[in-house]
Nucleic acid binder design. Structure first.
Length: 186
DNA sequence: CAGTGGATGCTCT
DNA sequence: GAGCATCCACTGT
């Protein structure tokens, strides 16, 4: 099936993904922080056109785009927009809900607040790597569960980029203490 | 607490 | 050969 939420504009899909539960082999949690990377967005990997790395971004929506960040970490994106122009949503933080013990073991720490608070952290906690690049998020081993109640979402500038810094395309669940920047305020 | 810098590999110029 | 959509350990208060 085509997944309606991600088939539309990335600017609606990104806030719309907040509150969904993402699982890989039954391990994961609620999405509480994402960033939108649009087509024609200088900060997006797709901006310079199609390359072997970004190939998946130009394919059907609802797939995973996985890339290596700073030589160390994996980062995961949900491909959006069915016209294949290269839009995607970067997953930045989850509220861990399922498979806590496995995530603790993979991350090598106990504090649940540090398990999935950051794009590199959440991929490590879920065991998500480039072998999942191009995978369909609606099919096993992945699962996506919609939120059971409406979610309040706040908007702010994106983190860690050097281009289009002013665009407020980071979306966080309002009041969440599970986002990658929550510990700063706490 | 805050701030700094090292690890590390792949992509594109 | 530069530049990253990062994380963590370390420093100094």
């Amino acid at each position: 099936m085509t997944w309606e939420l991600v088939a539309g504009s990335v600017h609606e899909a990104a806030p719309g993904l907040i509150g969904w539960t993402l699982l890989l082999d039954g391990v994961g949690g609620r999405i509480v922080e994402v960033e939108a990377y649009a087509a024609d967005d200088p900060a997006s990997h797709s901006y310079r056109g199609r390359t072997p790395r970004t190939e998946v971004m130009f394919g059907p929506p609802g797939r995973l785009y996985v890339y290596r960040s700073y030589g160390l970490h994996w980062c995961a994106n949900v491909v959006c927009e069915e016209d294949g122009r290269g839009a995607a949503v970067l997953l930045r933080a989850l509220e861990p809900t399922r498979g806590l013990d496995l995530m603790r073991a993979r991350r090598g720490l106990d504090d649940p607040r540090l398990l999935c608070a950051g794009p590199g952290r959440l991929t490590q906690a879920l065991g998500l790597t480039d072998e999942h690049n191009g995978a369909d998020l609606t099919k096993p081993p992945f699962a996506l569960v919609p939120p059971s109640a409406p979610v309040a979402v706040e908007q702010s500038p994106r983190i860690g980029i050097t281009k289009a810094v002013e665009k407020p395309w980071r979306y966080v669940e309002a009041g969440s203490s599970w986002s990658s920047r929550a510990r700063r305020a706490a």
